[in-house]
Amino acid sequence: MPYTIYTTGIGYRRDQIPDEQIHGMDNPWSILWDPTYKGKVGVYPSYRDVMAIVLMKNGITDLNTGNDADLEKVRTDLLAMIDAVDPRIAYDASYNKLQNDKFSVTTAWSGDVVAGWEYAAPYTETAYKGFGYWFPADRKGPIDNDLIAIPKNAEHPRLAHEFINFWLTFRHAMDNFSWNGYQPPQTKADVNALTKTQGLYNKQSSSWAAPAEYVAPWMPDAVVRESDFAIGYREGPLSADVDDHWHEIWSEFTAGVGS
């Protein structure tokens, strides 16, 4: 069962990169190569997601490509990134390091940025409003979901189904979303509802003066729409040879080749 849905876009600090700037760029994906932010560019230690962004930057929408020419472009761009911005590889890039001004711009899963306010010390309005999320306005970008599965040999399959039913309930799904930032696949949870409705956890944390809405109103791009799954691009399994090729390129990047 799909448990959470998310897009992969770009997280940025709004005090250093105004919304108009990134939204006005011809190719916002390329901001990750902008030397202005050298030493403050983050990427996830996730070869599929980072290489998917490099593909998007090059206008290649097949996120499972095995085409040598496509992958050569990815290799060239990844190695160029090292020279251009000396990126940092970190899992907490978009929910911690961005909020604490360690990074100016980073690859970002929408759920990480939505939950990022919990890490935005000193928990003031300025700190909350300090970071944003960009995803293509036409919604043509990487989209994916996490899921809950029941093993075939599960000892308590009925209990497992009850548990899944619990998560499918709108209220529980939304309560969970209000603290972990990853959106449940609920049709009622649209952009309007999420950016204007107060979440349970957010309300409980009101003493922090946290944004009360499920998703901060200034980052509607972070809300996943049902239609995104028809428009966006999904990562699928790669054949062994293609996967090895992807890994080889990623290894060159993590080894610091190009520096």
Binding site: P45, Y47, I82, D86, P87, R88, I89, A90, A240, D243, D244, H247, W250, S251, F253, T254, A255, G256, S259
Partner: peptide, 26 residues
């Protein structure tokens, strides 16, 4: 203390490979 590919050490290569699908042999 770094996180930059420019300071990657041999241990980091092992760590990366262990955590990557299909790279256990590596």
């Amino acid at each position: 203390l770094s996180g930059s590919p420019k300071t990657t050490m041999l241990g980091n290569l092992i760590d990366d490979a262990v955590g990557s699908t299909g790279q256990g042999n590596k």
